[in-house]
């Protein structure tokens, strides 16, 4: 963007320059983009949830469970939920830190969040290895792996984003006035967490 786009009226010129430099008033442009992207992801998971509930509705009550000898590991899933929720808190601490102008704390909290995210993924993979049923085993298997699997893929995407943020903050690229990428990644991370809460509640609690 250049400052060559100017209003013919002098009064508007400074405002226009400011507008272009800082994405006008209100939310920074990149965050608007991230928000819209998250909206599309909400619809994507909506579609996946629709397949879950449709499969669920086709099975009589009491028969909705993994095919023998498979089983769900609720305690492990609960621990993973706690890990992810905690990581949202640590992410937010990092955002607050950089808003205060403290890149050191941002680096710390981002690293912790990244670690928790990787821990979640590792735990999910471990869970998969212990479950005793596959995606091809009954409609339960299909929707279970699809829903949790795509959520995991989104966590992975978030992990990539966190890694980039960590690298950039280590190089001192973020300041209090200029850290849109951190806000964007944190918004995405919170979204991933909220989706997990829905996934966990639906699969493990609602049944």
């Amino acid at each position: 963007m250049t400052a060559r786009t100017m209003q013919a009226h002098p009064a508007g010129e400074e405002a226009a320059e400011a507008a272009i430099a800082h994405g006008a008033s209100g939310m920074p442009t990149a965050l608007v983009g991230m928000l819209l992207f998250i909206a599309s992801e909400v619809m994507f998971f909506g579609g996946l949830f629709a397949t879950y509930f449709s499969a669920r509705a086709g099975v009589p009550a009491g028969a909705w469970h993994p095919p023998e000898p498979g089983h769900l590991d609720l305690p492990l899933a609960a621990v993973l939920t706690a890990v992810l929720v905690a990581s949202s808190f640590t992410m937010q601490f990092g955002v607050w830190a950089i808003r205060r102008g403290d890149p050191g704390k941002l680096r710390l909290w981002t690293a912790i969040t990244l670690g928790l995210g990787i821990l979640f993924l590792a735990g999910q993979l471990y869970d998969y290895s212990q479950l005793g049923f596959s995606i091809a085993d009954s409609s339960f298997g299909t929707v279970f792996y699809t829903l949790t699997g795509f959520h995991g893929a989104h966590v992975f995407g978030g992990v990539v984003g966190l890694t980039i943020v960590l690298a950039r903050t280590t190089r001192g690229q973020f300041t209090a006035r200029n850290h849109v990428a951190v806000e964007a990644v944190s918004m995405y991370w919170h979204f991933v967490d909220v989706v997990w809460i829905f996934v966990f509640s639906t699969i493990y609690l609602l049944r």
Binding site: A39, F45, L48
Partner: peptide, 14 residues
Amino acid sequence: ILLATPVLAAGLIA
């Protein structure tokens, strides 16, 4: 587009 296309994506993946 933003809200409808992802639903198609979910269906195609399924």
